[in-house]
Structures are given as structure tokens and as C-alpha cells.
Design a binder for these strands. Structure first.
Lengths: 129, 129
DNA sequence: TCGTTCTTCTACGGAGTGTAGAACAAATTG
DNA sequence: CAATTTGTTCTACACTCCGTAGAAGAACGA
């Protein structure tokens, strides 16, 4: 699934942060805000549109073409997407157990606690396939 | 840190799988073996060397220049590297807890069990910084 | 020193990404 | 309906990364 570029990532972040689907122009404005402190540079709308198309193509973004302007939303939540990525990475390894061990070693105590809680909740819900 | 290309990945896999550091030529042969079933195609040694240099530049590979031929080894274990990657991905998210929840939801029962065990072991060894 | 072995330099083509103008389509309004 | 505004698609270019490797240079054994 490959890693996203910087602008792609910003746009996904914007979509993930937003409750409602956004138009290209709204995104453009949003991005300008975000960038104001950094390299405050206004992007062309076409730039945003191009990237949105690419993200749509990668199935990360869903576009509503029935309205004008078109509205865009992330096809899955950031958490889902991120978890999926992590899983992919984990799967690319030959020794999952070892990876998980190292992974836990670098996790904060709070997160470790959270994980324990989650594992207890999940304990009985055996996966089907 | 970005994702590795296919050949880069193969080379890292080879280095990770090997006990000892390897020379470019050894790697070349190793890769030919691996590829025999697939697209059995012999790479030029220079190709391997180029990629090794790039990997060295990315600090994934360490090269011993005191011997001839130079010997190459992975700078960290596959497990470490993978865990680090996972951590990076996790860190890129705004809601780690949620991500971990989703992540656990897609983990096999065996892995869940392993995680429980690991968490118990790690319980007391609080991290310093 | 001569050849062999190994490494470095240089280079090219293809893919992915940031960037956006030009051209085209739809909606709004006079 | 015609003109203007708003929005979308097409096309394109530059830059970086990666796979690939030849040519040229360096080191070592005979």
C-alpha cells in the first residue's frame, strides 16, 4: 500500500479530522490555515484536486459526484487505516512474535496498560476466519 | 524512513537471515538462489553494490571497509527494525489508543495470547525516558 | 608489474509525488 | 438564452527514489 507523500498525508489528515465530507476548496483553505505557521503557501485548487483524485484512485478517499462541488471523505477512519498499516508491516516480518516483543518494549506504560485492558475485552471474541 | 523498494527489501531480508556479514558477491549469489523459482535472473554485482550503498546511506546496513571484499550486515535485527517501523506508524496517528484497539482487533488469537504473556513480563520494567 | 577482483562514479529509465495551467463543463444570473 | 463565475478534468513538468548496470578507478595476489 506504500507510504503517502507529504501533501497526500496532509489532505488525509484534514479529511480524517473533519466530521463532514469536504470540497476541494474547503480543503484548500483548511490547508492554508494549517500551513500558515509553517511555510504559509497557498496551493492551487487544481493541486488539491489532483491529489484527491490520486487518493481516490488508491481507495483512500471516496468522492460524492452527485453534488456540486464534489465532496470528499476518507474511506476509512485514521485509526483503521493506521492499524491496517501496522498489521501489514507486522506481516512483512518473518518472526511476528519477536517483533511484537520489541514493539511492546518501546511502548509507554500507559499504552501497555491500555493494551492489557483491550486484550481482556477481546479475550473471548474469537475471530472466525 | 519511508518504505523500501523490492530489491532493497530482498537484500535486507538476506542480511537479516544471515548469521554473518556478507559480501556483495555472496549476496548476489544468494539472491539468485532466491529468485530461481520466480524470475530467475542474475543481477550484476554492481547493482547489488549500489543498493547496498543506498542502504548504508539510510543506516540500515553497516559496512566493514577494513576487509576486502567489504562485508555488509544489517544494522539492526529485522524484529527491531519492524517494531520501530510499527512504532513510527503508530506515532503518526492522532489517537494511539484507538489505533491499538483496531490493531488488536485484527490480531490472531495466538498473537493476542503472546501479547498477554509479553505484557506480563514487561509489567514491572518501567521505561526511564 | 600485470592481471584479477572489487569498489566507486556516472547514468538512464520508470514510477510516484508536488505542482499547476489550459481546456472543458456546469451553474448562476442578468 | 448569453455571459460570467465556479468547478472539474487533462495534460504536463520537475524532482526524487529505485532498479539496473557499464566504465573507470583502486587494491591485491602472482
Amino acid at each position: 500500500m506504500a507510504q503517502l507523500g507529504e501533501l497526500e498525508r496532509s489532505i488525509m489528515d484534514a479529511l480524517w479530522a473533519s466530521e463532514n465530507p469536504l470540497s476541494a476548496t474547503e480543503l484548500q483553505e483548511y490547508l492554508e490555515e494549517r500551513a500558515r505557521e509553517t511555510s504559509g503557501k497557498q496551493l492551487a485548487v487544481t493541486t488539491v484536486l489532483t491529489v484527491l483524485s490520486r487518493l481516490e484512485h488508491k481507495s483512500l478517499v471516496v468522492r460524492d459526484r452527485t453534488v456540486r462541488p464534489h465532496l470528499y471523505r476518507a474511506s476509512s477512519s485514521q485509526a483503521d487505516h493506521t492499524a491496517e498499516l501496522m498489521h501489514e508491516i507486522l506481516g512483512s516480518s518473518t518472526d511476528r512474535g519477536e517483533v511484537l516483543a520489541r514493539f511492546l518494549g518501546s511502548v509507554s506504560p500507559e499504552e501497555a496498560a491500555a493494551l492489557r485492558g483491550l486484550l481482556d475485552q477481546t479475550r473471548d471474541s474469537g475471530r472466525s476466519a
